[in-house]
């Protein structure tokens, strides 16, 4: 499936079709990460059931140093 992830067009392996699988794919299970798809924030409790769609605009966000 082709999606845009953090501004980059990528092709995801066929077995990845939920947010939870995407997070596992990038090994972010133990990281502080916030997921937004097509400008909608996805609640953590819904990661396993939220399906990715062809062309989804996905943002994976975290906190960095700042003032």
């Amino acid at each position: 499936m082709n999606v845009r992830l953090n501004g980059k067009s990528i092709s995801l392996p066929a077995e990845i079709d939920t947010v939870a699988e995407l997070i596992r794919h990038y090994e972010l299970e133990n990281r502080i990460v916030i997921v937004e798809i097509d400008k909608n924030i996805i609640e953590k409790t819904l990661y396993a059931e939220t399906e990715l769609k062809e062309g989804s605009e996905i943002e994976m966000i975290h906190f960095v140093g700042g003032g």
Partner: peptide, 29 residues
């Protein structure tokens, strides 16, 4: 402690993240 909200560098090797090393019971973000 203040922080900024940014995209993760998921396409690069993962960097240590200061927030993830903090004892969050001691600080208000």
């Amino acid at each position: 402690l203040t922080f900024a909200v940014r995209r993760m560098n998921i396409f690069e090797e993962s960097q240590p993240n200061f927030l993830e090393q903090l004892d969050l019971t001691k600080y208000t973000l």
